[in-house]
Design a protein around this nucleic acid. Structure first.
Length: 193
DNA sequence: GGAACGATCTGC
DNA sequence: CAGATCGTTCCC
């Protein structure tokens, strides 16, 4: 049970992303095993960092190991882990986790729905994350952290194109645990090993 | 100053 | 399959 140190995040987002699979995402009593991620980089037209730093994406250009949380569609939040050297504008979107602890709290925050954290915005709702957590340091304490409990990333993650975006769609920068399926892929054919 | 647009989710 | 809902960005 070891919290990941800052140097661990100081790599390219496409390298960190698959390594995040099976790590534990912790916020307060809520713990989830990371099941699906996507990488975003500054040279990537789909990335919020593509057009340089702004007030919204400032934390994406911060130190590796920060949390980047943004509001989407005016009503949902999504959480990212900042990676790479300071100023490089990279992050990994946490798309899904498998609930491990704090399930009661998650159920309450999700209004009793059974699907607690199988989508990026559902996850933020279940874990109680919003814009006030943007820029938080995942390497500072145990209230908000990424933890390695010894389970390694899978040798055979499913790899596919990112979803919900209109540009940069060909890039195979989405990774998911091979099993169990936390969320059915929209198109099974998009996954490959 | 204003318009267009989301790295989504939900219920019809 | 469309509506929700508003901050951010970009263009005039």
């Amino acid at each position: 049970m070891r919290r990941l140190r800052r140097s661990w995040f100081d790599r390219d987002a496409t390298e960190v992303a698959p390594d995040l699979l099976n790590k534990l995402f912790v916020h307060g009593r809520c713990v989830g095993r990371i099941a699906e991620v996507e990488a975003y980089r500054e040279d990537d037209p789909a990335s919020h960092s593509f057009r340089g730093p702004t007030a919204r994406n400032a934390s994406m250009f911060g130190r590796p190991g920060l949390l980047y949380v943004y509001l989407i569609y005016g009503l949902h939040h999504c959480a990212n882990v900042v990676t790479g050297p300071l100023g490089s504008g990279q992050a990994v979107l946490i798309r899904a986790v498998l609930p491990v602890a704090g399930i009661e709290v998650m159920q309450q925050r999700r209004d009793g729905r059974p699907d607690l954290a199988d989508g990026p915005a559902k996850l933020c709702r279940a874990f109680g994350l919003d814009r006030s957590h943007d820029g938080s340091d995942l390497c500072a304490g145990m209230d908000l952290a990424i933890v390695d409990d010894g389970l390694p990333p899978p040798d055979d993650p499913l790899v596919g194109g990112r979803i919900g975006i209109s540009r940069g769609t060909g890039l195979p920068w989405r990774w998911r645990l091979p099993s169990p399926a936390p969320r059915q892929p929209a198109d099974p054919a998009q996954w490959s090993q």
